[in-house]
Design a protein around this nucleic acid. Sequence first.
DNA 1: TTGTAAGCGTTATCAT
DNA 2: ATGATAACGCTTACAA
Lengths: 337, 337
Amino acid sequence: MNIGEIARRAGVSRSTVSYVLSGKRAVSEGTRQRIQAVIDELGYRPNASARALREGRTHTLGLVIPPASQRLTDMQLGFVASVVEAAARVDLDVLLSPSGGDHDRSFERIVSGRRVDGVILMEIRLEDDRVSRLQQTGLPFVTIGRTADPHDTAWVDVDYAGLIARCVEHLADLGHRHVALVNRSAELVAAGYGPGHRALAGFTAAVADRGLTGVEVCCGDDAAAGEACVEQLLAAHPELTAIATVNEAALPGMQRALDAAGLVVPRDFSITGVAARHWAEDFRPPLTAADVPIVEMGTEAVTLLLESIATPGAARRHRLYIPPVSLRSSTGPVPRR
Amino acid sequence: MNIGEIARRAGVSRSTVSYVLSGKRAVSEGTRQRIQAVIDELGYRPNASARALREGRTHTLGLVIPPASQRLTDMQLGFVASVVEAAARVDLDVLLSPSGGDHDRSFERIVSGRRVDGVILMEIRLEDDRVSRLQQTGLPFVTIGRTADPHDTAWVDVDYAGLIARCVEHLADLGHRHVALVNRSAELVAAGYGPGHRALAGFTAAVADRGLTGVEVCCGDDAAAGEACVEQLLAAHPELTAIATVNEAALPGMQRALDAAGLVVPRDFSITGVAARHWAEDFRPPLTAADVPIVEMGTEAVTLLLESIATPGAARRHRLYIPPVSLRSSTGPVPRR
DNA sequence: TTGTAAGCGTTATCAT
DNA sequence: ATGATAACGCTTACAA
């Protein structure tokens, strides 16, 4: 079933059918209806490959996700869902590529096979090969997260440094003097994963600024790691009265470790950080936290990508999200011991 | 950059370049190397649309996911990740389509625009419009989950009925007489979502078989719903001593409600069900449960789809997973009250 | 061993 | 208001 067949059945030329489809040229109402009837009857839709070849546009976006070998986090999956949704709203399809480095076959297929009109990159490192590769090819792209030097590049990101600093300040205001940062996994931080580094930087700066003592630990992205991590933390630093964290997936475990230690939140211990809203709300008591606006970020990434595609020459925009720290019930005045 | 340009620079014809790329015709070592050098130098890769148009194959699979309006569950996301991974392993790309009904634009683009070689469908209902639509178009497809009558259709599924029955039997063997089934959300069940119906059927049959009293409740797919649900269940049915569930996302909340009621698992109350392994292992104490083999299922779905694509005429295969109920620590003898 | 050319299904330019 | 046709980049049957 192709456009020629439709034309034949409607007794017109292929171009007329094409123009009925696109509306780019006036077609008399009579023939228009006749053609449309044939199209509807046969359920005809133009061949996407032929159209892409001819137009030089695939109407498809590439979304590069971390290889699933390590289970994707809720936040990453939230980005995927919101990007796909936002793309669907403007009739764009999304092609997934699970790629870590830049020698990945899947990644190369996407960037150099003209399979997509642009790419959204997740899980960005401070130095990221994929970003350089994309810059070199000239394919429009947007990153969720940003490199160390995101000069003239389109991105959306959360201000982890500023937000963690704000959390520490909040704790300091409540009288806490000994606080810990529970960071993301050691591997991620070692690989130069931005949020891990920026959270640490913000933590260190705020702790120094307020004259607190701070300890930072890395922690795997799951409940079991969170439990072990807080357990060790409490044992090694009994003076600790508060934690700030960017590791939402570890929260349930952290909660268990606090419970096990007989610590009641927020009476005996405060905890706060940066997390997706549902993680914060699922915490008991609900977590005082800056809520990462996952859906907005995914949506904005698509918007920025469409801009980059539409205006190849123009300067690239970006958006740094600084969501407010929502006061819930997990932080309180430092306990008197 | 196209194949003609490579041919020009290497001083050969386009077909020779094509044959070097595909290896479908012998090319003398000298010219082969010369051509390969040019290809490497320019980082050339064939245009995917042109190739798809010519070959009639896109080397792309479609993956239909539920619209993200309701947050995707961990299990759904696990399927996405494993399908993408399995496809990447055989150099296939995956196009995502967030579609509920069959009038979805994204779904129609995928199935009738020749954008993919085959489709994997998730979140199957007992009567599913998308399945009929796909059958009608003749596009190869595999479902994760199955319809009421999955005749000559390729699918992978978990035997929810059998597994829940087995859970109930396990509870009966431990002396429990009053058990509850915590099902998926009422909307899902009302929409004819297979696992919900089959879990209920298995539960009802096993309860009757063992002469127990059973109560079934629907529950939203999140912790808050699980908490509320168990709270109400305990209030309305104080005689209950055990729960079987297929709602993994509600588990953390169910745990909280049990804690709040002062019930110690498994001493005072038993709980078991069907869940992904990490949910079972994150439960305290670890949940006795049949672990849904998410990765295997996603991988097998891709395998079956490739078969369907390769042998259009052949009978369709399917695979029903019946994972063993892993004995962990959340079930015990019925308490004496 | 290599080259020539047709054709995949579209869209858009140029005619009429 | 509509039709004929070239071109998009590739693969492959056919020639040489």
